[in-house]
Design a protein around this nucleic acid. Structure first.
Lengths: 495, 495
DNA sequence: AACTTGACACCTAGGTGTGAACCT
DNA sequence: AGGTTCACACCTAGGTGTCAAGTT
């Protein structure tokens, strides 16, 4: 994925390593907190919004259901609040959760979702959420150590956090208890003048959300509650929901996890990440096989193939974790029904990210590969100079207009080569070195002339943005931008 | 537009007439009601949901702002409720509003939107909506007379209508009065077992929505209100919001108005409807001119023109309300930038809908035309037998797969002619008979070979579905389906 | 023959991360 | 050089009328 320039700078080691953890003194302490679910229940006793986390509290854990319970001891009754989606929150928390804040307001992901128990079924309650500072520090992300460091002090004391009343409020205890109470519509903003009711936060600070259960009284009007009432409030804090505010993601692992789990970021998802590295591509994209490159031929066929689906032989779909037995069949399944739109060349090379070189896979790499025990995939894309290419499915109108020539003329000559290294997920799809040796002869570069349809092409474009460019060292932001520009320039984008 | 088979059968007369009104005894009475804004305010005195429209009420009108006010006289204070979007409601009401109901639930369009005035700013209110039967009759739409007729009796008495509480409830009078209160999330269903809280109605019946302003009392729980409380309720009815429930639109004019006004139906919209009848097409679709048809040539060029934009001369764009001065230039503006995808033939004929014949325009028609004072446009589309037509923008995969031959083979011979009559909106773009006579010689059929791009093609397909098939008598459902099938068969659809 | 249903193309509306450009 | 903003491609989610096929 084309992670942001910042995120690109995240060190390779921590990405490829088996189970990357934040380094430093905090790690052990946080782990303990996670295991303890980090629950806090406080009874509201004063008007201070940034209430201290004091007060009696007990905790209970249901790790198998992915929930955690907070029981708030009270003169009346024990109210329990369970955080939903605890597993996901913990995955983020282990890395160091970041939340984007924007001027217009950005939703949280994950969002705070709770189940409430042991309310009085017949009483009316408001349920609300706010977000308070964890400390008075300003933070800075240090790329080379992949850590958040204190960068200064901030005085939060004069700011009263905005209270987000759950839209179903007020509601009977019975009704609240029947449903999962989701705060997914909450939006975070860094705009101090915000008039849309979003929660206002400062970037590069640590915060923690709180959930409040408020007993309804006749005086309360939903439209008039802007701060917590003096009494009848129970507050719950879940340590796992702590986060650092950012305007752009700092830690690449956070970006990755967000993309993987947030449905709205599906467009940035690597289609094959949950299977063998190549499986996703192989199964998703229709290819012709065996791969062979004839750019002149391609140039001639580019238009001629429009709308046709000539019967070509299809290769055997290989998988990276179970390589094909036929020595030279690096082909992919062929879906003729979608072979009607566009002809572009594309080919793969196997590549070891730990080798550090930008060269095609060579026999000498085998030995080093055995040491590293993992392997990536290098993609070679060839871009012929196609002046009058027909692009019927042109969604990006603006870019499409600009596309007639100049953008492609950045590249000299009729054919361009772009080498990309695909960083596979650590451990998820590593190719065993032994297997690689066995089949490595079949993995040497082949060139392909392949037809595939434009919707596939657009997905491929998205997919390739998840590739890591092939450099020995982590990319600098500038490098990342440059490579992305080449790959994602208007014309290429249309591939 | 390809109105539903039912809607197709709507009689020509009522479509073309200057200001079509429903015929029958009701017309005069309804007109009075419209002018009186049809307001009703009733004070709830019993639990009967289907309350009678009795009670004291006054009315006030602000026609220039498109709103209408209801003032409910009361022991406490006058509460006023204004229907928003009154103009739109009235346009529908004049035709005879229809609302689709489905098993899954369908939104209303227009939706009920009101402004409330003179509430007690400090009191809490619920605002709710329900929909009650207008009478105990079942209705049937009679196509040849374009009228709704009583078709039987229904006993509604045992059914208590579902109450839809506005999601902002309860809320202070102050807050309610600050905003437009919209019931656009209300959904109507014909599923008697509905468990999603939608309003359950019976198809082919007449209903009227009611808006209730309910004073909050401590006893009321938002989740527990399923019927109107005994007291503290003021009810408002707007005559213009009456509608007949259908599962498919019956009156083509309703379909047309829904498509024109509902943003979600934009895909079915005729791009030129707010200008001269032809202007939209002429300005929107790139054409080559002068129109001339050479099907053999077309067949040969169909693929050859892909991706090219050969420089052809473009005709003068005429408008139906101001015909072009050049005698034979029924051409259209040419947008070469989009002439790269597909070549299809299409031509126009002027046609008088009141003549009733399916023949091309003849001199003898002129006299009759003068009497009718209005004119439609007839479209002649020619479909050559194109076996291997290139269809890059194939979104409808299912149809695309079926498209190879059989569907087009329904038509005998290499070329098919389909006559469509385009019913222009009454009064919006009528061609003066005098002007027609003057220019009628230029309106005799011409044939055209024209290139235009696929996105345009898809819109044209949508547009042509709005045409009315040229038959002397209103079409039967079967006829409508047949003609639509020809025009919209898988291959044609891609035009 | 009248009416209903369900899959569908085509929209609106809005939530994502990206990277260029900008600010400080 | 760190941090922020904005237009954007690419998604999810769901509201339209259409039509073929079904039911009554």
């Amino acid at each position: 994925m084309a992670l942001s320039s910042r995120a690109h700078a995240f060190s390779v080691e921590s990405l490829v390593g088996k189970s990357p953890k934040r380094k430093g003194d905090h790690t052990e302490k946080e782990k303990i907190m996670n295991e303890a679910s980090g629950l806090l229940c406080e009874k509201k006793t004063d008007r201070s919004a940034a209430a201290t986390e004091s007060g009696e509290w007990r905790k209970k854990r249901k790790s198998d259901t992915g929930m955690c319970k907070a029981v708030c001891s009270d003169s009346e009754k024990d109210v329990q609040v369970e955080l939903q989606g605890l597993d996901l929150w913990k995955r983020f928390h282990e890395i160091g959760t970041e939340m984007i804040i924007t001027k217009a307001g950005r939703r949280m992901f994950p969002s705070v979702r709770v189940k409430v128990k042991d309310l009085d079924p017949f009483k009316q309650y408001y349920i609300a959420m706010d977000i308070i500072p964890v400390d008075s520090k300003r933070y800075r992300y240090v790329y080379h150590s992949s850590q958040w460091m204190v960068a200064g002090n901030t005085d939060h004391s004069c700011i009263t956090p905005r209270l987000y009343i759950h839209p179903d409020s007020p509601c009977s205890g019975e009704t609240w208890m029947r449903q999962v109470i989701s705060f997914d519509r909450v939006k975070l903003t860094n705009n101090e003048m915000d008039d849309k009711g979003h929660i206002i936060l400062q970037s590069m600070h640590k915060y923690k959300p709180r959930v409040h259960v408020i007993v309804h009284s006749a005086k309360l009007d939903l439209a008039q509650i802007h701060s917590l009432p003096d009494e009848g409030v129970k507050t719950f804090i879940f340590k796992e929901t702590e986060f650092t505010t950012v305007t752009a993601y700092q830690n690449q692992q956070i970006t990755k996890l967000k993309i993987d789990r947030n449905p709205f970021a599906k467009g940035f998802r690597d289609p094959g990440r949950n299977r063998g590295v190549l499986d996703g591509i192989l199964e998703t994209y229709p290819w012709r096989s065996p791969l062979s490159l004839d750019l002149k031929h391609f140039g001639l066929e580019a238009q001629g193939n429009l709308g046709t689906s000539s019967p070509l032989s299809c290769g055997t779909p290989p998988s990276i974790s179970g390589l094909p037995s036929s020595p030279c069949s690096f082909g992919l399944p062929c879906s003729n029904t979608s072979l009607h739109s566009l002809t572009i060349p594309l080919s793969y090379k196997l590549y070891s990210p730990s080798l550090g070189g930008s060269h095609p896979f060579s026999p000498a790499d085998h030995d080093r590969l055995q040491e590293s025990g993992s392997v990536g995939v290098q993609v070679l894309a060839d871009f012929p100079f196609l002046e009058s290419f027909s692009i019927p499915q042109l969604r990006d109108k603006k870019k499409g207009v600009d596309c007639k020539g100049p953008c492609i003329q950045e590249l000299p000559g009729p054919t361009q080569h772009l080498y990309l290294r695909w960083m596979h997920e650590a451990g998820s799809a590593g190719l065993p070195a032994s297997q690689l040796r066995q089949d490595s002869c079949s993995l040497l570069p082949h060139y392909s002339l392949c037809n595939y349809d434009l919707s596939m092409a657009s997905r491929l474009s998205s997919m390739t943005r998840h590739f890591k460019l092939a450099e020995a060292m982590p990319l600098t932001p500038r490098e990342g931008q440059l490579c992305h520009k080449l790959w994602n320039s208007p014309t290429y984008h249309l591939l």
